[in-house]
Amino acid sequence: MYLKIFLYLILIYILAVAQISFIATLPFGMSNFNLMLVCLIFILMLSGFRLSLWWALGAGFLLDTYSFSPFGIYLISLFLMVLLANFLLANFFTDRSLYSFLALTFFSTIFYSFLFYLLAYIFSFPEIKISVLGGKDFWLALGFQLFFNLLFVSLLFYIISFVSKRLKPVFLERSSNKF
């Protein structure tokens, strides 16, 4: 059990560093890709709600340590995002098809982005450093984030489908000896 926890901490550490230092500097809008969010969605789908909440906690703490936004923004945003994703998963997107993954990622990304900027706006009051949902930068960043998150989810889904039977296929196979 301790080995598992240690392994999870190492994985969270690597993902956080990749998000902070590698993805943030990529060109062509790829810097908006939210690796942490996508990983949390997959952990929620494959490993369960509780583990994804602990991952959100660890990832949020590491990101907040490096962020110059008020401490707690990433913690709260990721945590609430996982809560919402679990609610959607339990009540609407109950299967594990590609479409469920995509829909879950779509709504989670939108919720996370809006919540993040709202918290940044509130915490920066009265010395407001950003305008709430202001400017084309926010919408452009959201568009890029949605695009790359959904693209990565699709790729990861197919990769996991090859190696694991835990994901439902998109198309059902017809039985060859039906008639």
């Binding site: 230092s21 943030a24 962020s67 110059f68 900027y117 305008s131 930068d137």
Partner: peptide
């Protein structure tokens, strides 16, 4: 330099470094 833009200042991307 270990990071650029996004984490430091999500709105004004590319205008700050860590």
């Amino acid at each position: 330099i270990i990071s650029r833009g996004t984490l430091a200042n999500p709105v004004n991307r590319g205008q700050s470094l860590i």
